[in-house]
């Protein structure tokens, strides 16, 4: 492509701006998490911390915490608990959602049963209603079932919230596959289920991956659902714990930034390594 010098300079400027807008706030958080408290509150501005320190990560992950020279109670017990809760609920929601969408998506795409399209339409329509609309009765229901603050309860709410998108995604993946393959398998005498598991699912791999990544990221980032359904550390995830560091009577900015940076790691890895699937899921899920 031949471009004039001005155009290429404009483009370079634009890309720099775009990268700065997307990454600078994150880099600033990383920088702050590596800065000593005394430098964090210094009035002199500097891009790099004058002295690098790992003390905030030490406070977060160590057995004792120090704040302004005073030894305070370690936050590691809460932090590790919340980290485990985040991982368990996000992973469980992802596995259940993907399995349900993989099987259900096939049923809604290829098998005929009464009311199929109407049911599918209704389920997809819930994408357009705020999940919070149903939260109050759902909360009362979970209270009466004793499922508040249990992994099962939180996971079920997550699945009900994230399944419609995954289902839509998988259904469009199945519909995009050539039907001739399934017909050939049927002629060879393979049943529908066997065809699904041996022929269709392997081909739908990228779609399954996209559905899994989207579901995991949404679950990992959830705030309002656990705010209501996970009141204690039994199931409280990082997203609910970290803001509590802010609302304590003192605010430890270094600790806050360090906790945020650690919570960023799983999504960061997904974006860096599985970017391709993520993009395809985002565009398909938004009604290609």
């Amino acid at each position: 492509m031949k471009t004039k010098p001005i155009q290429s300079w404009l483009m370079r400027g634009g890309v720099t701006l775009l990268l700065a807008w997307s990454l600078a706030p994150i880099l600033w958080a990383v920088r702050s998490s590596l800065t000593r408290p005394v430098d964090l509150t210094a009035s002199k501005f500097s891009f790099l911390p004058p002295t690098f320190t790992l003390q905030h990560y030490g406070n977060l992950l160590g057995t004792v915490s120090a704040f302004q020279g005073q030894v305070t109670q370690s936050v590691w017990p809460q932090f590790s608990r919340a980290l485990i809760n985040s991982l368990v609920t996000s992973a469980a929601a992802t596995v259940i959602t993907v399995i349900a969408a993989a099987l259900g998506g096939y049923a809604f795409a290829r098998l005929r049963f009464p009311g199929r399209d109407a049911i599918f339409g209704l389920i997809v329509a819930t994408l357009a209603i705020p999940a919070y609309t149903v939260m109050i009765p759902l909360y009362r229901m979970m209270v009466s079932l004793h499922l508040v603050d249990t992994y099962l309860g939180v996971t079920l709410v997550y699945v009900s919230a994230f399944l419609p998108l995954a289902l839509w995604l998988m259904r469009s993946v199945y519909r995009g596959l050539p039907i001739a393959l399934e017909e050939a398998a049927a002629i060879d005498g393979a049943g529908k289920l066997r065809t699904l598991f041996t022929i269709i699912l392997p081909m739908a791999g990228p779609g399954l991956m996209a559905a899994a990544i989207l579901t995991f990221l949404t679950a990992w980032g959830q705030f309002l659902i656990p705010l209501v359904f996970s009141p204690t550390l039994a199931t409280k995830p990082l997203t609910v714990l970290i803001p509590e560091f802010v609302s304590k009577n003192y605010i430890d900015y270094g600790l806050m930034n360090a906790a945020g940076v650690l919570a960023i790691i799983p999504p960061l890895l997904l974006v860096v390594f599985l970017n391709r699937y993520l993009i395809s899921g985002l565009t398909a899920g938004s009604g290609k």
């Binding site: 775009l18 997307s22 994150i26 980032g221 705030f223 970290i242 803001p243 945020g260 999504p267």
Partner: peptide
């Protein structure tokens, strides 16, 4: 560049807000 652009969307909104 696309990966960098996507990143803010992929992070937990709570962490974004704290940043």
């Amino acid at each position: 560049v696309l990966a960098a652009v996507i990143l803010p969307w992929a992070l937990p909104p709570v962490v974004n807000s704290i940043i």
